[in-house]
Design a protein around this nucleic acid. Structure first.
Lengths: 303, 303
DNA sequence: TCCACTCATAACCGCGCCTTATGAGCTCAT
DNA sequence: ATGAGCTCATAAGGCGCGGTTATGAGTGGA
């Protein structure tokens, strides 16, 4: 990932990107400025600065408003993805900041907190704008402790078993995916990989003791032989993208890489690497109130 | 999507997020500062500002370096997604700016330019850092014109037919997906939806004449009855998320919504809504040089 | 013809962030 | 033990970006 020049000198800041989205939506610099609470000249200047930075005219100004140019429409679409990521960031950060007196206190495993919670929080904010959520993240045991100690109202964990002393419901299934760089031989295979072949192949994996590792060993009926053992999802992906070998990770962690084809999924023949994602709570009736709202969002439809 | 307070007051700017990633990777404020070309106090201050903004300590400082706190690790993961979106933005913008004297001139349909090109450009930059790419985006006819006029070396189009006068190869298949908000009855269906039922249901669609619309009408054997006709992918998604009804869009456009479950895919019984994505070029031998490099990235493995 | 709307220009100003210089704390090697 | 070498924090000063208000120019409709 070696960059020559810093990214933030080539990408407009979030305020400018959001302004561009507002201009696209409202069709006027002035109205966009008003919506964002800045003056019209400020908006005008910002867009101008952005156009100079990108070297391309983005909006066509006319006495009756402003429309995006063709390039502007494209840039706006790309900008939207940055802003959406920023919104997910904000939703997560807000929950992290919110103190223990929140209306809804959630504890979640790292994987779920990382990949699913921001989306859920955004959806929850849309459905129930007045629900303040706080988020604690840790491993399954940590989640169970917080729940039992009364520090959290709902928890989310991944793994084969329901933690002892808690009630819960399966909300989704998480599939582990074997993925390789497009240049890897397995990317071109016509036949799916069979369990024994997978077990015999050195893989790039999370460290021993991780949930991923556990599921994989169970499914293969023995210990997978690691080519590399890395401590973070990010490091595993980077190694696989670099062509070091096949990696095994949750599909949650791989969505991005698979859809842009930085990595390619390897079809498997006689193994199914799934684990359950569960919502958990203190024993008793199903949670009510805000917790119930959140669960309604997360529960997978019967399929 | 009404926000009460502006987003950029609650989310650190890109420079700060990238700094956080550098700190996570390098384990030291000072080294991160050096990598980004700023002074150590500037980095220290930036992180501090970010912690104050988020209301959560992010890094644990020690005389031997800085490590992320648990919350910091989570924030960093969320930050990584923002930065990745910004990198895609940059890759696209750079190609838009690059003048006609680039080494590789690409023309692409809007959908492909929007969803696939940034990823391809990033991959190409990783593989061949010295290849300057320029990008022109328009509809299929526009792409064909640019190629035939010699203004572009390779093109990418979606649609059933190869544009007349060009050679090409199918690089991927794009599936149209019927999706509904999680609250919609179809989200809970156990039985897949059949063609006739789909045809009889008012749908949220792109406007007449769009590629999406064409494929849908072909597959249903008649004109789909639109509930709403909207001019942009974004508007269609927003309407569907708002629960107005089922929408039909490329899976490329829906990846994000489906994985965060803002929308749910509706399984179909006896219709397959696919269209081919093609690379196209002027008649003759397969492109060589930079164009060939790009095609190698985009071609789907035989599966 | 004049009003209502668009965006652009100009002049001013203040906040924010960066810089350099320095200090304090910890670890380790000599 | 003690000082070198690393860490991060604090302090003081200055520059620049991006904001504001005030105004003007252009266009279209009443």
């Amino acid at each position: 990932m070696g960059e020559r020049a810093p990214l933030w000198h080539r990408v407009p800041d979030l305020a400018a990107l959001e302004l561009l989205l507002a201009v696209a939506r409202l069709g006027s610099l002035g109205r966009a400025a008003a919506e964002l609470g800045i003056s019209q000249p400020a908006a005008s200047g910002r867009i101008r600065t952005m156009e100079k930075l990108l070297g391309v005219p983005l909006v066509e100004r006319s006495p009756r408003g402003s429309r995006l140019t063709r390039a502007g429409a494209l840039v706006t679409d790309w900008a939207r993805r940055v802003v959406e990521a920023a919104e997910a960031f904000d939703a997560g950060a807000q929950a992290l900041r919110a103190d223990r007196d929140s209306r809804l206190r959630v504890a979640a495993s790292m994987t779920i907190a990382e990949y699913l919670m921001p989306g859920w929080l955004i959806a929850l904010r849309a459905a129930r704008p007045d629900t303040a959520v706080s988020l604690l993240a840790g491993n399954s045991q940590f989640v169970a402790e917080r729940l039992l100690a009364g520090d959290a109202d709902v928890g989310f964990v991944e793994g084969p078993a329901l933690p002892p002393g808690l009630d819960g419901a399966v909300i989704a299934r998480d599939r582990l995916v074997v993925a390789v760089a497009p240049a890897h031989p397995w990317a071109r295979r016509s036949a799916p990989v069979r369990a024994e072949e997978l077990a015999a192949t050195p893989l790039i994996l999370r460290e021993e003791g991780s949930g991923t590792r556990q599921v994989l060993d169970d499914a293969l009926g023995r210990h997978a032989a690691p080519l590399l053992e890395l401590a973070s999802t990010t490091a595993v992906k980077a190694a696989a993208v670099g062509g070091m070998g096949p990696c095994v990770l949750s599909e949650l962690a791989l969505t991005e890489e698979l859809s842009t084809r930085r990595l390619v999924e390897v079809p498997l023949a006689d193994v199914t690497l799934t684990r359950r994602l569960r919502a958990v709570w203190r024993p008793g009736p199903h949670p009510a109130g805000p917790a119930r709202d959140l669960l309604a969002l997360t529960r997978t439809p019967t399929r």
